[in-house]
């Protein structure tokens, strides 16, 4: 499988702040890849360098086999974290404009813009000015703008932030559709659940450095297995369990990691009767846990 993107010891410094520190990675074509990390970890800077909005101070970025990413901007689609629209432009005009900026011929852009709006159910709004659209409609238009020109590689910076559940679902659909259409998708997020459900592979970035990289299966196999439970009741009992190393408790769901030699059956026995257990299974650790271990207990949100 060819690589859609490779980074080789890429670094970027803002004054005295090392935003990205010698990151190397490979992303195979046709996959969905997640950039995970806390806010300010360096995800956006990395993405901006891939889009050649910033130049790296050192290191080499190869996008779609092309070392000079400036020259292949037209084959990339990009949705920045902070999204805006020209308020006074009509929806179709805006799409057509962004399309032509990416090299779509003007006549085609007109047709394509209306077609795309039709596919997301905004056909009747294509002549509305962007300021007249609701927030959700605006978000759809922004996403359409990234694929107006049939890009081979789509990069979405925090695509899920600020979306309501319906739009999160819509965004997930869009990403999967992109993959089905043969595009490579990279998106960044600090919400592990989003990545876990979608990604073929992930890259974890912490304080400008890469801490983990690989397919979902690869990154998970390193860690020991844990017990996942769904429960109702007073969770304080969980903390009193003997022979466990860590608990990620979310109130109705908990992930329990056992010290070596502890029998999972023993844990189950202790919990039965004190909590209503609706699910109990032994499986790979969640991404959340993987990330936590990778940054070795450093504070996270």
């Amino acid at each position: 499988m060819t690589d859609a993107l490779t980074l080789d010891h890429v670094s970027k410094r803002f004054g005295s702040h090392q935003a990205v520190d010698a990151i190397s990675l490979r992303i195979p074509a046709g996959s969905i890849y997640g950039f995970l990390g806390q806010n300010g970890a360096g995800k956006t800077t990395t993405i901006r360098m891939i889009m050649s909005i910033y130049y790296p101070d050192s290191g080499q970025i190869t996008v779609l086999g092309e070392p000079n990413s400036e020259s292949i901007k037209d084959r990339l689609g990009y949705l920045p974290e902070e999204k805006g629209l020209y308020k006074k432009m009509k929806a179709w005009e805006l799409l057509a404009y962004f399309g032509t900026l990416k090299g779509v011929p003007k006549a085609d852009a007109k047709v394509k813009a209306r077609q795309l709006l039709e596919t997301v159910g905004l056909g009747e709004f294509s002549d509305h000015r962007c300021e007249q659209l609701s927030k959700g409609m605006g978000q759809k238009v922004q996403i359409l703008a990234t694929i107006m020109h049939d890009p081979e590689l789509v990069i979405l910076d925090e695509p899920f932030s600020g979306l309501d559940p319906v739009n999160v679902e819509m965004m997930r659909e869009v990403i999967l559709k992109m993959k089905r259409d043969g595009r490579t998708v990279i998106f960044s997020t600090h919400v592990m659940e989003n990545a876990e459900k979608l990604c073929d592979g992930i890259v974890m970035i912490h304080r400008g450095q890469k801490v983990l990289d690989g397919t979902l299966a690869e990154v998970k196999t390193g860690g020991d297995r844990g017990i996942q439970i769904d429960y109702d009741g007073d969770s304080s009992i969980l903390r009193e369990l003997p022979g466990i190393t860590r608990i990620n408790d979310s109130g109705k769901h908990a992930e329990i990691f056992l010290a070596t030699g502890t029998d999972p059956q023993e844990i189950l026995k202790r919990l039965v009767g004190r909590l209503v257990i609706r699910r109990f299974d032994l499986r790979e650790p969640s991404l959340h846990e993987v990330f936590f271990r990778a940054v070795k207990g450093e504070s996270h949100e």
Binding site: R48, M51, I53, E70, K73, D74, L76, Y78, L79, P80, E82, K83, G84, L85, Y86, K87, F98, L101, K102, Q142, A145
Partner: peptide, 13 residues
């Protein structure tokens, strides 16, 4: 301030 700039910069220098 309306954050259009970044989308533009992904297409033009």
């Amino acid at each position: 301030s309306s954050r259009i700039i970044e989308v533009l910069l992904s297409s033009v220098s």
